[in-house]
Every structure is written in structure tokens, then in C-alpha cells.
Design a protein around this nucleic acid. Structure first.
Length: 351
DNA sequence: CGGCTTTGACCTGCGC
DNA sequence: GCGCAGGTCAAAGCCG
């Protein structure tokens, strides 16, 4: 179906890696664990990885780590994963759990460099851009000064520093850029990335009211790696797999780990088996973003109990609606663990 | 015909 | 203030 994916594939046929993109820079700068050689989509398997290390980075207590490890069985033992120990110190500060779109995220959530400015106020209601999509802005009309020749662009927001939803990214080894995570996305833009031969694509969740966005770009450093960055929290269950949440995940929760959970689901062994022979498709999601999923936030302390579990709960993979699973490529199964990496403020736009 | 991608223009933040 | 780069808009076009 999605022919566009195919196109993508075409257009992005692997080439030699080149210089580095911003992303790569960030990543490299923080040295992340090497990727496993996942046989891209057709062969599943994947790699194990240093989940433990990952958990550590997340500040997840062993108990959870343990369970997570269960969720992340290491299929092929292996690999390279030498785990770099580079830790991302900064990762700890997370925004307090919040209702999706209820309150503006302090910029700090993004990283820590930017002092959580007091100006946070500006962002009108949080619902601003992330939540309702950018539609809201349409309302204003104050600045007409802009000639807006061809398109009438929305009035610009005043001096409010654009606030962003927390984001986290995953690096996936895949031939396709747009990984099917069970949600429906509409591409709304594509831009060339500086120092990278690969473009960055921008997607928005098509569900009305859900302002989750994601950016997808291929690492120029390793063309086989796709970096998917989620921003925002889904306010709804996956359309593709109604049962995806198997009821375990209340909306709030879903929203919480939001982008991540919803988008990246830890496979549930049982489920997988039940439905597919694809049970070997275990993924190892990895985030390297400075900001952890909302739920995990705030303090390493509560991070765990309430948040993490929920994280593991929603397993979309292996659900019956494996529409996604059945696809040949671009599955999150290809997600490869790496380490969380702090994004450089510089590179990262904070809004 | 609806849903989605494509794509150039426009907006915005930031560093110089 | 200028220019750059990232992010977004929306018309046009494609496709099932």
C-alpha cells in the first residue's frame, strides 16, 4: 500500500555515508552504542543490546530493568554493542507528568540549557500548536502587515518562544524512513538537512486533536540508520490497532509515554506469539533524546514506578492488527538500541 | 473523490 | 539587521 514509502525507499537508497548531519553530530558527540546489525526488515532479529545500560541511563531501577529485559529478550546475542558508557547526564530533568497539552512545557524539558524561562507564559495555552495543531493561530489577524503574497500564512505568534513538546528519538536500522508505528501520519513537510544528503521529513498524526509530530531523517553517518524523533503525546489509542492497548493503557497513560509508547511499543512476547510468527521481531527501542518521555520525567524516582511500566504495557507490536507488522519494511522492529544521548542545545532547536 | 505526498514559499529563532 | 537553517503551510498533484 503506501506507495510513498516505496518511493522513499527508492529515493533514499543507501549511499555512502557522507558528512554528518546535525543529528549525527549530536549522536556522535555523545557516542552512542553501536547499532546492531539488524537485518533490516525482512529478517528480523535484531539485536540485543545493552538494555541494561539503557535502563541505567534512564535511571530505571533494576527491578524494572529486569522486567524490561524480559520484554527485550536478546535474540541474537550479540553484538557489537559495546556500550559506550557515555552517559548523558542531563537526562534526568524531566517535566512533571502532565496532561497532554495541558500546560506548556517548560523549555527545560527540552534539555537543560535553556533556562526555563519565565516567559513560558507566553505560550498561550498549551494547546497551542501541539495540541490542536496549528489551527488555532488562524484566528488572529492582527498582523496583516505581511503581504503574504501567495499564501496567507498564519499570523505569527508574538514573542512567545515557541515551546515544544518533549521529544525523544529513536534510531532504527531500516531501509525505509517512515516506520510504521501503528499510527497514521500525514507528511507535511520535508527539508534538506544541512550537511546531510538525506532530507528530513515531517509528519503529523492525522488524528484530529492529536498534535503529535515526528521527524524522520536518515543518518548521514550511517545511511542505514533512520532517526525518528517524536514530539508530543498521542491523545488517543492507535488507530491501527484498536486492541493495541489492550485496554491496559489508559489514555492518560498512553498519552504519557505518549509518543513513545504509542509509537514505540515494546513487544509482548505472548502477544506476538499468539498472532504471528513474527515473534522474533523484537525491537529495542532506544532513545537518545535529552528528554525522556514525559512519564519518565521529573525525577528518576517516580520515573520508574508509574511511568515505566506503562511504557512497557502498551505493546502494539504483535497485536492482531499487525498491519504494520506485516509490512516488509519500516517496522519499528528495526529499532536499534543505542544510548540516550543528550542533544546539543545548539543543534537542537528548542523552540 | 478522498487521503496523502510533494514542494516551494513563508515563518521563526539564532548567531554573527 | 542579515543570513542561515529548521520548521510549517498549503496549493498542486498523485493514486487507489
Amino acid at each position: 500500500m503506501r506507495k510513498y514509502m516505496d518511493n522513499k525507499k527508492e529515493e533514499l537508497k543507501f549511499e555512502n555515508s557522507m558528512s554528518n548531519s546535525t543529528f549525527s553530530d549530536e549522536i556522535q558527540g555523545n557516542s552512542f552504542a553501536p547499532f546492531f546489525d539488524m537485518p533490516t526488515c525482512d529478517q528480523q532479529g535484531g539485536g540485543g543490546g545493552d538494555q541494561k545500560g539503557f535502563m541505567d541511563l534512564l535511571g530505571i531501577p533494576d527491578e524494572y530493568t529486569q522486567s524490561l529485559l524480559d520484554w527485550f529478550p536478546t535474540p541474537s546475542s550479540t553484538t557489537t554493542a559495546t556500550t559506550t558508557t557515555t552517559t548523558t547526564t542531563t537526562t534526568t530533568t524531566m517535566p512533571p507528568q502532565q496532561q497532554p497539552q495541558e500546560q506548556p512545557l517548560p523549555e527545560s524539558s527540552e534539555v537543560l540549557n535553556t533556562p526555563a524561562t519565565p516567559n513560558s507564559s507566553s505560550i498561550s495555552s498549551s494547546s497551542n500548536e501541539a495540541a490542536n495543531g496549528e489551527q488555532i493561530k488562524a484566528g488572529h489577524e492582527e498582523d496583516q502587515d505581511q503581504e503574504k503574497t501567495k499564501k496567507q500564512l498564519k499570523p505569527k505568534k508574538k514573542n512567545q518562544k515557541r515551546q515544544r513538546e518533549p521529544r525523544f528519538a529513536f534510531m532504527t536500522k531500516s531501509e525505509v524512513d517512515h516506520l510504521d508505528d501503528g499510527y497514521r501520519w500525514r507528511k507535511y513537510g520535508q527539508k534538506a538537512v544541512k550537511n546531510s544528503p538525506y532530507p528530513r521529513s515531517y509528519y503529523r498524526c492525522t488524528t484530529t486533536g492529536c498534535g503529535v509530530k515526528k521527524r524522520v531523517e536518515r543518518s548521514s553517518d550511517d545511511p542505514s540508520i533512520v532517526v525518528t524523533t517524536y514530539e508530543g503525546q498521542h491523545t488517543h489509542p492507535s488507530p491501527v490497532t484498536p486492541r493495541g492497548s489492550i485496554g491496559i493503557m489508559p489514555e492518560a497513560t498512553a498519552a504519557g509515554f505518549g509518543a513513545m509508547t504509542s509509537s514505540f511499543v515494546i513487544p509482548q512476547p505472548q502477544y506476538q506469539q499468539q498472532h504471528h510468527h513474527h515473534h522474533h521481531l523484537q525491537q529495542h527501542p532506544y532513545m537518545y533524546s535529552s528528554q525522556l518521555p514525559l512519564n519518565i520525567s521529573t525525577s528518576t524516582t517516580n520515573l520508574n514506578s508509574s511511568s515505566f511500566p506503562s511504557f512497557i504495557q502498551e505493546r502494539r507490536f504483535g497485536t492482531s492488527s499487525s498491519a504494520s507488522l506485516l509490512r516488509d519494511h519500516g517496522l519499528l522492529q528495526d529499532i536499534v538500541p543505542s544510548q540516550m544521548i543528550r542533544k546539543e542545545p545548539k543543534e537542537e532547536y528548542n523552540g
